[in-house]
Write a protein that binds this DNA or RNA. Structure first.
Length: 500
RNA sequence: GCUCCCAUCGUCUAGAGGCCUAGGACAUCGGAUUCUCAGUCCGACGACCGGGGUUCAAAUCCCCGUGGGAGUGCCA
């Protein structure tokens, strides 16, 4: 049996570094065993998925060199490789119908309101939060009548009520054991008629002849559902293997609020795909002879799935930078030159309109743009503290701004552009400068700081390392969220050290 | 709350019962090279979460605690 593995990202937002990580593992496994590596786009959430995001996934994988043998933009004989197209073919509906007919799934007419109320009650009673299976026993004829009357419905799986689910994951010493009674009657078909991940992935993995599913640990809890679906549908399940999740420095699951997670960001920053892959390959895995510098092709020759460590590794940018330096310095001069050009070009069109006011000659660009390409800045302490402020005050103001930036970034659909940044900071100034009727002298003094002059300067110096820059919000927008949050963080730290 | 997973230096890891006074890399600190910085070379600091077993022998196996993480969505 030839190995067939896949990655199945969802095209929402920017292509994710986690996709690259799981992609690398699957790619290596396929190459090592002479199998196929497949890309499938899982866009069954009509509200969140976009075509632009799918395109960005193709581009990012191509950039990294994780070439796939079959996929949406390269074809293959087990397609289509985009789930929305498969929905139109009626593929998932057919299997959902089969499960209902077999008595392994049922119609449920609960509304979002019903479910919310159920959860609230369960939470209050400290009970496990799951669907109470209230429509599980509904007569099929009765259900059909409601469907004919155009009542919205979903299809849920009818999981076993007793016994244990047991599965041996090759990377874990002990088998995974879960009691069936704790497993939810998961929705398989949503009320819009589209499948959920669970149904779609199981069906497609089978239809596409996937032999091994190497995926992140966040899926481990739904493993019983997937195995069960395979069984009820009469499929031979692929082997499921769960690897650790990439983490932030605080060990939580990697998130864009605490780390750059967008592959586009890394490319824009000038990171080399070789370095990125090399770095990802050291997470949870190691080269057999202890070597730390290697290409993904070299890795593929010795890659051993059983050597993966499932403890979630912290994604450490400092180590990535080190590897990047190694790769960059050993490149031939022609490629170095191309890389420098590319790094400048990536942001040139964005930066030139901003910087030209402060330029007279073409070469002035280098000095004017310096802060936008720098890995970090080191502002002078006395410049970081606006006139008449104390270091502690500057620190507090920057902390408030940084928190606002983080919250803005974490919010769904928030743009990092000039208008929203200006609105954000000016809004903050409005809030913070307003005093309650009852206030202390200290509060009054702090509120008085919140005027554009001082706040803008503190932000400017923190973000750029200098008192001179293009207009603040243009600058913040061009720097991007990661740089702004990281640099204000560094400034806060610096001001904190001084206070002590 | 409930369920599941995980646990070696600050971080990434080596270690599949004796080779471990636990090895390497990043970061940090010091020295050398250098006009400076970076790089490079050398060195220092630094870990088996705790407690019980099993065994002649445990970082490695088992149990319990603790800690961390994930899931708990008509998201994936």
């Amino acid at each position: 049996m030839t190995v067939r593995v896949r990655i199945a990202p969802s095209p929402t937002g920017d292509p994710h570094v986690g996709t690259a990580y799981i992609g690398l593992l699957n790619w290596c496994f396929a190459r090592r065993h002479g199998g196929q590596f497949i890309l499938r786009i899982e866009d069954t959430d009509q509200t969140r998925c976009t075509e632009a995001s799918a395109q960005a996934i193709y581009e990012s994988l191509r950039w990294l060199g994780l070439t796939y043998d079959e996929g949406p933009d390269v074809g293959g004989d087990r397609g289509p490789y985009v789930q929305s197209e498969r929905v139109k073919l009626g593929i998932y509906k057919k299997y959902a119908d089969q499960l209902v007919a077999q008595g392994d799934a049922y119609y449920c007419f609960c509304t979002a309101r019903d479910l919310d109320a159920m959860k609230a009650r369960q939470r209050a009673a400290n009970e496990p939060i799951m669907y109470d299976r209230r429509h599980r026993g509904l007569d099929l004829g009765e259900a059909q009548k409601r469907i004919d009357a155009c009542e919205p419905y979903v299809v849920r799986m009818k999981t076993p009520l007793a016994g244990d689910f047991v599965y041996k994951d090759r990377l874990r010493k002990q088998p995974v054991v879960k009691a069936w009674k704790d497993i939810d009657d998961q929705v398989l078909l949503k009320s819009d008629g589209w499948p959920t991940y669970h149904l779609a992935a199981v069906v497609d993995d089978h239809l596409m002849g996937i032999t091994h599913v190497i995926r992140a640990e966040e899926w481990l809890n739904s493993l019983p559902k997937h195995i069960w679906l395979n069984e009820r549908l009469g499929f031979t399940p692929p082997e499921y293997v769960h690897v650790g999740l990439l983490r932030n420095a605080d060990k939580s699951k990697i998130s864009k609020r605490k780390n750059p997670t967008s592959l586009l960001w890394y490319r824009r920053q000038g990171f080399l795909p070789e370095a990125m892959l090399n770095f990802l390959a050291t997470l949870g895995h190691s080269f057999p002879d202890g070597r730390e510098l290697f290409s993904h092709q070299e890795l593929a020759q010795v890659f051993d799935l059983d050597r993966i460590n499932v403890a979630g590794p912290v994604f450490d940018l400092a180590k990535l930078r080190h590897l990047q330096g190694q790769w960059f310095r050993k490149m031939d001069p022609a490629r170095q030159k191309a890389e420098v050009h590319r790094a400048i070009d990536e942001r040139f069109d964005q930066l030139l309109p901003l910087l030209k006011e402060r330029m007279a000659c073409g070469g002035d660009f280098i000095a004017a743009a310096q802060t936008f390409y720098a890995a970090k800045v080191d502002p002078h302490l006395d410049e970081l503290v606006p006139k008449g402020w104390t270091a502690a005050q500057a620190r507090k103001v920057l902390e408030i701004c940084q928190t606002a930036f983080k919250n803005h970034l974490a919010g769904e659909g928030n743009a990092w552009d000039v208008a929203s940044l200006e609105g954000l900071v000016r809004g903050l100034i409005g809030e913070q400068s307003t005093l309650p009727f009852e206030h202390t002298e200290e509060q009054k003094a702090f509120a008085a700081l919140w005027a554009p002059k001082g706040v803008f300067m503190a932000l400017r110096v923190a973000a750029t390392g200098s008192k001179e820059s293009p207009p603040l919000f243009d600058t913040l927008a061009a720097l991007g969220p990661m740089a702004v949050i990281e640099r204000t963080g560094a400034a806060i730290h610096k001001l904190g050290v001084v206070k002590a």
